[in-house]
Design a protein around this nucleic acid. Structure first.
Lengths: 125, 125
DNA sequence: TACCGATATGTTTATATTTGCATATTGAAA
DNA sequence: TTTCAATATGCAAATATAAACATATCGGTA
């Protein structure tokens, strides 16, 4: 398996990514966006979540906007003004989708682990 | 499931990709590279395979070079000169890795199909 | 030995993504 | 009513990635 000694493949790892996208290929939700949304939930703001993940507020804001336009429902509820300048929380729809996606991620990890193990095993004898 | 009516998610599809990469994130082999290698095998040249896949020879050549450097073995054997200008074939090591990767792809597809089905089911009731 | 087409590779150009910047808006609290 | 920090958004600058271009090399075969 990757990382083990005595193999041609020891310096190689299997990686994967999955995401929701539209017919036209526009990406809506992937693992990193899931993390962003989780952080929005935890931090209460897009700004904080963006900082935490080292991406620009501009990008996150745009990504969310696009996703919501395509999905045709709100993932987050954003408020402006107030003492803290504003805040963002997840909607129920958003929460549902995200928890389903998180569940999917777990399933994927399991499936991937098994097949990857087999893959490296078949290569390395 | 994606594509069905009566769902908030009807216009969204689940997609995925997987690949071999190094610790530092350099990508070595993914589905599209697998296709390139298959075409190299079939066509007998990098040039032809690149054309067939609408990517530049320059890129494919560079990708192969990088992959081989990282993997530390040759995936292809390249010849220059001669009547046809040259030719490229897969090495045994290359063939082995590629068939293992192709097998992996099949396994993935199965696993993914099952989990994806469950995902959309859980979303759309 | 001249020719042809593929390999080999540096360099430049084009395209796509992100970031960064600027500026406006908002509204609770001091 | 001034303040503050987050949201909202257009636009320019910076990065990353790939394509295009330009040559050089190579070696069977005509």
């Amino acid at each position: 398996m990757a990382g083990s000694k005595g193999s041609k493949y020891f310096n190689v790892f299997l990686n994967y990514k999955f995401w929701l996208n539209t017919k036209t290929g526009d990406e809506i939700l992937d693992k990193s966006m899931l993390q962003i949304f989780k952080d929005i939930e935890k931090e209460g703001s897009i700004q904080a979540a963006a900082d935490k993940n080292n991406v620009s507020y501009r990008k996150v804001w745009g990504d969310i906007k696009k996703a919501e336009e395509i999905l045709n429902f709100s993932i987050v509820e954003k408020k402006r003004g107030g003492k803290d300048g504003g805040a963002t929380t997840l909607t129920t729809d958003g929460e549902n989708m995200l928890s389903a996606f998180a569940e999917l991620e777990k399933e994927f990890n399991k499936a991937i682990y098994k097949t990857a193990k087999k893959f490296f095993h078949s290569l390395n004898g």
